[in-house]
């Protein structure tokens, strides 16, 4: 059902945990649906220097959270904002079709975290372009 890569990230998630001094947080999902993903970012000179996640959800939710943090670290805000749900799934050697829609929320969480950071620094997405 799950690819080796999904199982690997699910078993040994990267960048898991809270970030107390985070510059911004993106929260997506709802416990009723079974998925809740929080992405924390630390930003310096518009570069994401650190990223962490906390996730309630199935193996796909956890693995996509882990993968999105790996894809994000060291990227500029603009580059990170371009990471899509499909990028996350592709880097995990794909997800079961039923999970593509419901549990593949980590990229949305990242986008929300970036939007939160921009809001805090008095900017909008347009300013990144």
């Amino acid at each position: 059902m799950y690819s080796e890569k999904v199982v690997e990230h699910f078993t040994n998630p990267r960048n898991m945990g809270e970030m107390e001094d985070a510059d911004a947080v993106g929260k997506v999902g709802n416990p009723t649906c079974g998925d809740l993903i929080w992405i924390y970012i630390k930003v310096k000179d518009d570069i994401i220097t650190d990223v962490k996640f906390k996730t309630f959800g199935c193996a796909a939710a956890i693995a996509t959270s882990s993968m999105v943090t790996e894809l994000t670290k060291g990227k500029t805000l603009k580059e990170a904002y371009q990471i899509t749900r499909n990028d996350v799934a592709d880097n995990l050697q794909g997800l079961p079709p039923i999970k593509m829609h419901c549990s593949n929320l980590a990229a949305d969480g990242l986008h929300k975290a970036i939007e939160d950071y921009l809001r805090k620094t008095g900017r909008t997405i347009e300013d990144l372009k």
Binding site: T32, C33, L36, W38, K54, T55
Partner: peptide, 23 residues
């Protein structure tokens, strides 16, 4: 549980009225 944002201090009820995409 260490991975989950939910806990005694952040219970499910906090999200009850939040809008969500039901799938």
């Amino acid at each position: 549980r260490a991975m989950s944002p939910l806990s005694k201090d952040v219970p499910y009820e906090l999200f009850e009225n939040e809008e969500h995409e039901h799938h």
